[in-house]
């Protein structure tokens, strides 16, 4: 195992973690303020990716594609919130899980209906298509590096939005006492819709960015959704900081586990058995991490009871 490969994998893990954060931030905000489990968050991710792919193939512009992903996911988020989600805030978690599971079915099949079953492709913009030379003789794809940068900028922007602005203040107030801020004259319905749209836009944005590395297809949202849930559970549901730490933990554990575990078992086993056990364990590693963290902190790393 040489150092160059290790650093490349670290960067991959970081990129994965940053993308997870964009998904997890919306989920955790929506849960923190409205108390809603939104399984359909993965569908918003998919909508963003499809909107970006459609606009990119029509106009050829990656920037327009990213804007389209933000807009499409935010609009879908507003519609879903106003038609379905706002009826669920007072319901128990079981109803929320089922209703948003139903939304997944509707969104997935609807997208398949419109775009067909074949995956679409979103090209990496030509300015970012090459590799960048980093110190120690590492060359790393420019686009993935850009994703890390964009993700960190968005994370910082979100941090500023929540800690430094009036709307952020309302969001934080909503997290600690919903009834009270409604009583103080904040239009809570509009605030909820805005938070949902913000979470949706972040998810759609993540979908578009990842769509250029992977293929854009129906069902792409659900694996990411589950990882995002693992992320916010590890971090403590409702905590943005927890989502950030959790996302990086999950991203790095998953990526490094896949590289290191087969090597680790190879030290005292024959190669094929080590490969099998190593990769089997690696694919379970983040769930083991989550179970272990919940055992010691049943409400996650930064969660409040």
């Amino acid at each position: 195992m040489d150092l160059v490969l290790l650093i490349e994998q670290l960067l991959n893990g970081l990129q994965f973690g940053v993308m997870l954060f964009l998904m997890a931030a919306g989920l955790t905000l929506i849960f923190g303020v409205m108390g809603l489990i939104n399984l359909a968050h993965g569908s918003l991710y998919m909508i963003g990716a499809f909107a970006a792919a459609a606009v990119a193939s029509a106009t050829g512009s990656f920037i327009l594609a990213l804007i389209a992903s933000l807009a499409a996911a935010a609009i879908a988020g507003v519609i879903v919130e106003m038609v379905v989600i706002r009826r669920l805030y007072d319901r128990d978690h079981l109803d929320q899980v089922l209703a948003t599971f139903a939304l997944i079915l509707i969104f997935s099949e609807g997208t398949r209906w419109v775009f067909g079953s074949f995956p679409l492709y979103l090209d990496v913009p030509s300015a970012l298509s090459g590799a960048v030379e980093l110190p120690f003789g590492i060359s790393y794809p420019a686009y993935r590096l850009a994703i890390i940068g964009i993700g960190l900028v968005v994370a910082f922007g979100l941090f500023l939005l929540i800690t430094r602005t009036r709307i952020g203040m309302r969001i934080r107030a909503g997290e600690s006492d919903r009834e009270m801020i409604a009583a103080l004259g904040v239009n809570i319905a509009v605030l909820y819709t805005a938070i949902f749209a913000l979470g949706a836009a972040l998810a759609g944005f993540a979908g578009a960015l990842v769509g250029a590395i992977q293929s854009v297809q129906v069902g792409m949202g659900e694996p990411v959704l589950i990882l995002a849930f693992v992320t916010i559970v590890i971090g403590g549901i409702g905590s943005i900081r927890g989502a950030f730490v959790g996302a990086l933990l999950v991203g790095l554990t998953d990526t490094m586990g896949r590289v290191l575990l087969p090597v680790l078992f190879g030290a005292f086993m024959n190669p094929s058995a080590a490969m099998a056990i190593g990769s089997a364990l690696a694919s379970m590693s983040i769930y083991i991490l989550m179970a272990a963290i919940l055992l010691f902190k049943p409400t996650g790393l930064y969660g409040s009871a």
Binding site: V97, S283, M284, I288, L294
Partner: peptide
Amino acid sequence: LSLRTSGVYFIMITLAFGQMFYYFTISW
């Protein structure tokens, strides 16, 4: 293990155990 948690955490940890088996059978 799961019943040490409640509410959303219970939903998520049972989901995680299910996924563990899912990925294990895929890669075994």
